[in-house]
């Protein structure tokens, strides 16, 4: 009696599994389609795109649009390509991510291991920074950057991004360190380690997963930011997102779609790479609080 019913159960299992896979593959294709269109069309001459078939593979492969987007395309008034703006973005993202991550880690350390009266209120206020719509702070930020003499400069953008990232980085590190055993800190105190020695020697070496999470999060957000980039930059501090917009909107009569596609991929490339390289740590880090080692 048991054999046939088990057989049915197995067959049902296979069917359900097949259905799940088909659905997953369909969604994956649907999700990857825009990327496919971008890549394919960035490798075609403009004529082929004008013929109308967006999904077709190039008849004549070319990397000219990529070279153009990188170094010669018209951006605003100057034919520089995206290169200088890409560098602006790198110069903005790297320090901003580093500063906000380090400060977030220190905040998390103090808020969990050096508790003081009202620490939860301080934390609550920092959390609020995660929910403030950035449009609200544009004018005060502009005023402060002006007072500091940083208006329209890359360091100004670094400052703005570091400050507005602090809410999130503090939240990440606080929640991670909340689960970190306080007895380790006490043991280190008895061993004579100072505030920063404990941080550097005991906490940081165990913080790998949450550092990866924070860096990916901050890198992606700051790299992709458009609002602050367009509000607080001047001609020579424009980040790549704004430059991409300028590229697409700088009309010299002909819309060079293939160059636009190549430029868009170039602009998205760093975040993609960061995610591909450290993505699995990202998931692991998000899980770290839930599953205790």
């Amino acid at each position: 009696m048991s054999a046939p019913s088990q057989d049915v159960a197995t067959r049902n299992g296979v069917f359900v599994r097949a259905l799940v896979y088909v659905l997953l593959i369909l969604f994956a294709v649907y999700y990857l389609l825009p990327l496919y269109v971008m890549v394919v069309n960035s490798l075609k001459p403009l004529d082929e795109i004008r013929q109308g078939n967006m999904l077709a593979l190039p008849q004549q492969w070319t990397i000219a649009p990529w070279l153009s987007a990188w170094s010669t395309a018209q951006i605003g008034v100057s034919p520089t390509g995206l290169k200088p703006y890409f560098l602006n973005s790198v110069l903005m993202v790297v320090p901003a991510v580093a500063i906000s991550t380090v400060l977030g880690a220190l905040n998390g350390y103090v808020l969990t291991k050096w508790r003081f009266k009202g620490d939860n209120i301080v934390f609550g206020m920092m959390l609020l920074a995660c929910f403030i719509p950035f449009q609200i702070v544009l004018i005060p930020s502009a005023r402060i950057l002006g007072l500091l003499g940083l208006a329209g400069t890359v360091p100004g953008l670094v400052l703005i991004h570091a400050i507005y990232g602090l809410g999130f980085t503090t939240l990440f590190f606080r929640n991670y360190y909340e689960a970190f055993p306080t007895e380790l800190v006490k043991a280190a105190q008895i061993d004579g380690a100072s505030f920063f020695q404990i941080f550097r020697r005991i906490l940081l070496p165990s913080s790998g997963p949450i550092i990866v999470v924070t860096v990916i999060w901050q890198f992606t957000n700051i790299w992709n930011d458009f609002l602050f980039g367009s509000s607080f930059s001047s001609v020579d501090s424009i980040p790549i997102t704004v430059a991409l917009n300028n590229l697409v909107n700088s009309s010299t009569g002909v819309k060079e779609y293939n160059v636009h596609f190549a430029g868009a991929i170039l602009a998205a490339l760093p975040t993609l790479i960061v995610y591909i390289v450290s993505g699995r740590y990202f998931v692991r880090g998000l899980m770290a609080g839930a599953v205790k080692g």
């Binding site: 007895e183 380790l184 006490k186 043991a187």
Partner: peptide
């Protein structure tokens, strides 16, 4: 704590 000339063994051992 480090100046009191004491040493402590913790319940969770607190090994780094």
């Amino acid at each position: 704590p480090s100046k009191r000339d004491i040493a402590m063994v913790f319940q969770s051992y607190a090994l780094y």
